[in-house]
Design a protein around this nucleic acid. Structure first.
Lengths: 152, 152
DNA sequence: ACGTCATGTAACATATATAGTTACATGAGA
DNA sequence: TCTCATGTAACTATATATGTTACATGACGT
């Protein structure tokens, strides 16, 4: 399987939602992401359970943001997904009897642990509000590009 | 499939080989690692191509170390495996047209890049000789444990 | 009440990558 | 020339993310 893209996907959804008031149906969001509504519900389930978003059934239902975007970090979102594995590599055997394997594991675990810690730390530094601000900046420069195209 | 354990596996092999003079057949090594000889040949192929080990066919053949263990780092070994993916996560789409996706990718790429760079850097700091020294230390304390058990 | 809409979820299908296994060709040495 | 060992292709097994279908649950409007 290709690499896990759920974090990327769910952030995409949240940022789309932050651009305009909701609610958004899974189908609408799925079309924007070129995927299936069930996939949306799947990756959003954890966020709903933690109260970052709300979902309503029936007419006028769908997904709504339910958190302060400046208080939720990528690390929170990652945790809401169930904290899936970060690294593609690991030890052959955990808690091996073989001393050779223990020596190898010790060295690798050190490096793996450092990398995971750094990644989580970086995730913790970025809020959804910061992502939104970056997006608005990108939207702004695109608008300017459009205008200069008009002028040209 | 569970996480890629080839680096762990090949280091295990190399450390075993460093403990006594070779050559070692794939079958011997496979038994020590509780796996299949073909798996050994597979993960050793890249190391052979780069000259870190040598392989000989026929009677008395097998695998031999062919490098200065103090000059080869985990990073070299990782590269010899073909530099497989380090991270289990990635972006949904590379080079997306959607600005939302671009904003998400930019944030994640930053974190992913940092983590990968750190991991490679850590790999580069550890030589096979250092692993061997750590192993001998572990072998030593096990021997002492055995002796104190005799005394008790 | 009833029909429609939307989520919730199970079940199944698809795709991809590692690991394990079998089979056989190649080549070295006794 | 027989045996041993590597080199490699091909196939199987397994795990996981993703895509899809089907249906139950519940909310809203008529």
């Amino acid at each position: 399987m290709r690499r896990d893209s759920r974090l990327s996907g769910v952030l995409h959804v949240l940022l789309h939602m932050a651009q305009q008031p909701g609610p958004f149906t899974s189908e609408t969001l799925a079309k924007a992401m070129d995927t299936n509504p069930v996939v949306i519900r799947r990756i959003m389930a954890g966020l709903r359970d933690l109260g970052y978003v709300r979902s309503e059934k029936g007419h006028g239902g769908g997904w709504t943001l339910a958190c302060d975007l400046s208080k939720v970090t990528l690390r929170d979102v990652y945790a809401a997904l169930g904290s899936p594995p970060l690294l593609a590599m690991g030890n052959r055997t955990e808690a091996p009897g073989c001393l050779v394997e223990q020596a190898v594991n010790a060295a690798l675990d050190q490096a793996f642990g450092d990398a995971e810690a750094l990644l989580l730390s970086r995730f913790g530094e970025v809020t959804l509000a910061m992502l939104g601000a970056d997006l608005r900046k990108r939207l702004g420069s695109r608008k300017l590009q459009g205008m200069s195209a008009h002028h040209a």
